[in-house]
Amino acid sequence: MSATTVILQLLQVVVGLALAPLLAGWVNQCRTWLQNKSAPPLWQPYRQLSKLFHKEVVLAHDASPLFRAVPYILVACMALACAIIPTLSTDLPFAPAADAIALVGIFALARVFIALAGMDIGTAFGSLGSRREMLIGFLAEPALLMVFFTASLISRSTSLATIVETLAHREFAIYPSLAFAGVAFTMVSLAENARVPVDNPATHLELTMIHEAMILEYSGRHLALVEWSAALKLYAYSCLGLALFFPWGIPEGVGLANFAVAVPALLGKLAIGGFLLALIETLSAKMRIFRAPEFLGTAFLLAVLGMLVHFLLEKGI
């Protein structure tokens, strides 16, 4: 563990914190373009955050300390996720603290806390959102875990750094099981980030929403932190998808030259990924809430199938 790797580690988190709203803005922009609307500026999410930070917090009488702590916990969990997902380098000093399974656990931790916060005020809305969020979660979480399992069966490790190194820097081989895992991962990320076929990030229509219902009582700086952590989650999932399925461009070592490659590669991949996300959102329609278990159940089974295909086709590879 040298000083440079530590700096790189911190840098990776800072880049994540800074880039996450930009990614959200970019996806929004792409979506409005695709829908023939005039797009908001790219830095709109930053303005939004700044506005919310300056506003006063309006807290319900029944809010408990838990409610006030949750936004900070969310940001902490997402920052931790950004620290262990290899985006700028695979040589991260903090990465051994949590492997892929622990990453799933950290996402689950954030989910449980936000669901609890949704129930804290005691409005019908909040607990409705929490219930739905947990419904999505109990199917999405094992599906995500199975995606990681497929990748770890290939690389014989659950450490994210080792997985990415194996996939990116070993001799080129086609892994059909990753095709299954990729489809499953896409479906899971759509659900986890409250995106269109499962949830609609742009609506406040009570019958359809999940994420927005839970955070309805948040305001001011708390809401800013919740929104920021949502953007961070999208960023983390995007980076995770890129690291697992398009790992090329993430350098192994540290150093300025590697860094000069890594950042543009990351930006380029994120831009393409964000556009594809907007495309999926534009092309699909929001499902009924009880279609969501079916959707996620399919993702789950596809991920399991990926593992089975690995056993059949890639045993020798």
Partner: peptide, 21 residues
């Protein structure tokens, strides 16, 4: 090793997986 499994065979494996999908 990947060297002994040719790219063609790997590609067919991929197509097989897509067929199953």
């Amino acid at each position: 090793t990947p060297a002994t499994v040719s790219i063609g065979a790997q590609f067919i494996n991929l197509l097989a997986a897509v067929l199953l999908l």
